[in-house]
Nucleic acid binder design. Sequence first.
DNA 1: TATCCTTTGAAGGCT
DNA 2: AGCCTTCAAAGGATA
Length: 372
Amino acid sequence: PGGGGGGGCGLLAFQDEGEEQDDKIRDSAAGPERDLAELKSSLVNESEGAAGGAGIPGVPGAGAGALGEAEALGREHAAQRLFSDKLPEPLEDGLKAPECTSGMYKETVYSAFNLLMHYPPPSGAGQHPQPQPPLHKANQAPHGVPQLSLYEHFNSPHPTPAPADISQKQVHRPLQTPDLSGFYSLTSGSMGQLPHTVSWFTHPSLMLGSSVPGHPAAIPHPAIVPPSGKQELQSFDRNLKTQAESKAEKEAKKPTIKKPLNAFMLYMKEMRAKVIAECTLKESAAINQILGRRWHALSREEQAKYYELARKERQLHMQLYPGWSARDNYGKKKRRSREKHQESTTGGKRNAFGTYPEKAAAPAPFLPMTVL
DNA sequence: TATCCTTTGAAGGCT
DNA sequence: AGCCTTCAAAGGATA
């Protein structure tokens, strides 16, 4: 109900997107660069067409007037309703908010740059001026240690202090490091949870401050966190100082090695602040819905960068924790009501078809397949 | 205070 | 092989 013609367009767009994802896989097997521009342009046109936008050709999201944007939002919104009977109020507000529409299709411009920020080129090219999204409070560690991603670090007017000579260098990540574990030995005075991205490993400032010879950076890997939650994070320092713990207690409080972030998680982490700034939203669930739709609007090239980043993330994670399995963290998040949770996840709440639309539309990790 | 919500992707287990 | 479940992040909302 309420889908209407616009909803049909939206549906077609999503279906096409899914087929296109299949095309991505096939293309990646046949030839990764083939028809890339054509695919990209078709995707962009598709998005604009589905959204009813009349933007400047070649400039996604540009030139759409207020009416066009409203219309685009209306249709897009209608399409969204196909997958969700009722959007959360904050999301609806956010989508209606004009400041939320302004950058709806602009993130593609930023993402490539942000990837460069994650992998700064050798010649100190990380000094590009870039509109700095307001630092989210979550980027601040509970005890005041700024948690800057590499993107944020290189764009911050006051980046993490680092000697100029080092900050200008590229620190090569040793992909085949025999003793990586020594880099991330847990020490007292935990730094908190640093942003979990592969880039942290190359971050110059992270190579500093070690007082231990042979251990350039005695900073725990961001994937290593106290057992769970923020409370444990705060108590983690105390736990480290407490020597009179039983062996069982120590085992129980053993830091959890978190899963490596997938492509979408990396994208979310990078774009969250921007969406918050644009949409004046704070609720993560609503923000994530927007980010999910923006993710689908990304071109395959832009998504490929995140897939590649995620692949490297997994590679590094495997090197750091060879025996680790995702199974290790199963059951560590306690569910309030398992039945209720299952109902929410499998009971057709993800879309109107009782399936997992994202699964169907999500591209296979085409780059990893070609690389590996 | 702990968990839910919401997204996509990866991984493990089960059939 | 295909399906299902869980967990990664995030922070306001809720039990």
